[in-house]
């Protein structure tokens, strides 16, 4: 119990519960299965990118270019699929190749030239995005291959509303969940995963225990690229159109969601479950504001406040946790019995 209270996740979960109660009180439609499935579907895109961001943050880095990567992977893949045909599997494969290459380039540059990752990825963001706009001339693609539509409509679980309309757990939500489970396993149960934490904690120490810091760096940025490219395809599935400018600009919200979930910008800290809660908190705030008919322009203000409040409250808690030796205070003879510390 005490362990649970000490966890960041518990706080975020608490905040989510409070928000849910408030929103439901105003609009009971919030707390329905239908709405829940809807939130999970429309946030799969952000959520998948957040997995990549989580890895990068744990390793002590940061990536600003992933939205550009996602767009390029999405745009090029759809173009290729339209030219040469293919299938959904091929689409994911092609996007992954593009995403991994672009991400690995980031990782290589950051490790090779020791330029701070924020600078490197701002540069590559501009480069990637700039090239895309130049070559696509900003054109949208409306006519996606038919299999994009059929795939997007797949439901893993199907239920029916009182009026007999079908709803349920979308395939993209399932994809997001599968990726989260795999990533959590990778972070917790593999040597690679622990190396990422080690590098984020102290890169020099990591080198001294035999971790190849370079490989870890390249891996996390390549992984970020992979997640971004999958998210790009998910975006195409959700919107059923591809716009070169629709994703870029969302980077900071994704990073904020991950930090909200307990990852530290200083590196070494973060969990998949926390990240999920962080994404959900922002999603619920957004959804709730729509349901409560708050004008959309207020959204950013609320997001800012929510981030300040939750990040602030948990770091205040950390500050209270004191560093100390385990002192076993000598008990006084009664009547003043001092409780033995640890």
């Amino acid at each position: 119990m005490k362990r649970l209270l000490a966890r960041h996740e518990t706080y975020i979960f608490g905040i989510i519960v409070v928000f849910s109660i408030i929103i439901t009180a105003i609009n009971p439609n919030f707390l329905t299965l239908e709405n829940a499935f809807d939130i999970l579907k429309s946030n799969a895109f952000t959520g998948i990118m957040a997995i990549g961001v989580l890895f990068v943050l744990i390793s002590g880095g940061i990536d600003i270019s992933f939205a550009a990567t996602a767009t390029i992977a999405e745009y090029l893949t759809v173009l290729i699929c339209l030219r040469v045909g293919g299938s959904m599997l091929f689409a994911f494969f092609s996007a992954l190749v593009i995403g991994i290459i672009l991400g690995a380039v980031n990782g290589y540059l950051i490790d090779r030239f020791a330029v701070p990752p924020i600078i490197t990825t701002i540069a590559t963001m501009n480069l990637y995005y700039g090239l895309l706009i130049v070559f696509s001339k900003g054109r949208w693609i409306y006519a996606l291959p038919q299999y994009f539509r059929t795939f997007a409509d797949i439901r893993v679980i199907t239920l029916y509303t009182a009026e007999g309309l079908p709803y349920g757990l979308s395939i993209v939500t399932a994809l997001w969940f599968v990726l989260m489970v795999l990533s959590a396993g990778l972070l917790f149960y593999t040597r690679l995963g622990r190396s990422i934490y080690a590098v984020g904690g102290d890169a020099i120490s990591a080198k001294r225990v035999g971790v190849s810091v370079k490989m870890v760096r390249i891996f996390v940025y390549a992984f970020m690229g992979a997640m971004a490219s999958v998210a790009g395809i998910v975006q195409a599935l959700l919107v059923q159109a591809v716009a070169p400018n629709s994703i870029v600009g969302k980077e900071l919200n994704v990073i904020a969601a991950v930090v909200l979930g307990g990852a530290s910008l200083a590196g070494g800290v973060g969990t998949v479950s926390g990240m999920f809660l962080g994404v959900m908190l922002l999603a619920i705030v957004q959804n709730g504001m729509t349901l409560m008919r708050v004008p959309a322009v207020w959204y950013d203000v609320f997001v800012g406040l929510v981030i300040l409040f939750s990040v602030g409250s948990s770091s205040w808690k950390v500050k209270k946790e004191k560093v100390g030796t385990f002192i076993d205070i000598e008990p006084l003879s009664p009547p003043m019995v001092q409780e033995g510390g640890r």
Binding site: Y197, A198, G200, G201, D202, I204, S205, R208, G267, G268
Partner: peptide, 9 residues
């Protein structure tokens, strides 16, 4: 000399 531990672990 500087211990070289991982503070986050």
């Amino acid at each position: 000399q500087d211990l070289s531990l991982f503070p986050n672990l």
